[in-house]
Amino acid sequence: MFAAFLQYLFSGLTSGAIYALAGLGFAIIYNSSQVINFAQGEFIMIGGMSSATLVASGVPMPLAISLAMLISMAAGIALEKFAIEPARNSDVVTIIIITIGASIFMRGAAQLIWDKEFHSLPAFSGESPIAVMGATLMPQSLWVFAVSGVVIVALWWFFNRTMFGKAMLGTSHNRLAAQLVGVGVKKVLLASFALSALLGAVGGIVVTPITFTNYEAGIMLGLKGFSAAVLGGLGNGGGAIVGGLIVGIAEALASGYLSSAYKDAIAFVIILFVLFFMPNGLFGKRGTDRV
């Protein structure tokens, strides 16, 4: 009984951590531009596919992982430079549609560059399961937890302890004021796409040994990251993390106790529930502005 629950919990936390990273990616871009980047899932896919195929072709794992992160960041930067930046005077809805188009383009390109097959990456440190109170935990799940934790701490540090991070935050709170103190908002926008792509790639890479990946993997991962971000309150970083874990755990429990057919439906249910009943999400956007 409890062992089964624990098993579902482990699996939920593992995917939840990836959704949290994707959700943070949504939050960062949303904050710098009010745009919901529907190509976020593609960054996850590119990270997973690049690392998997590089390792399969004989590149040592650490190098393959670093390259995969760079490739995904390059995709993020290219997306901003060639699709978002030229449309910066259009309204937000137009730009959101551009991101949808870009995601379709990236999936098509992935299918051409790679193929339609599933790819995997060897687990980072072995495949022998660890027994925990009747349940089992794969060592790769520990990697997922640890890497996500480190990434979250690093992000916190970046946004709270570096001037550029603070400038990005400042831009999200008040764009005009940021411009007036000398923040280059174009640079902020570019950085937010690069950073979100990096977050996606990291998630995609650590989870690929567990879930495998293919050119379409970004659709569902992006959707779940989006539901994490919406649940936590769009633009709220901490909310996206909590949201990601909730989505992950909810779908693991639903597929464990009900039927695995419900697994992917949970994210939709959560999005609809939030949109109808709590449009600001669990935490809303932090706002203490007094006018």
Partner: peptide, 13 residues
């Protein structure tokens, strides 16, 4: 350098 109309502070910071 400008101190803009309506103050425009970074409220949550």
């Amino acid at each position: 350098s400008q101190s803009p109309e309506g103050r425009q502070v970074f409220g949550p910071m």
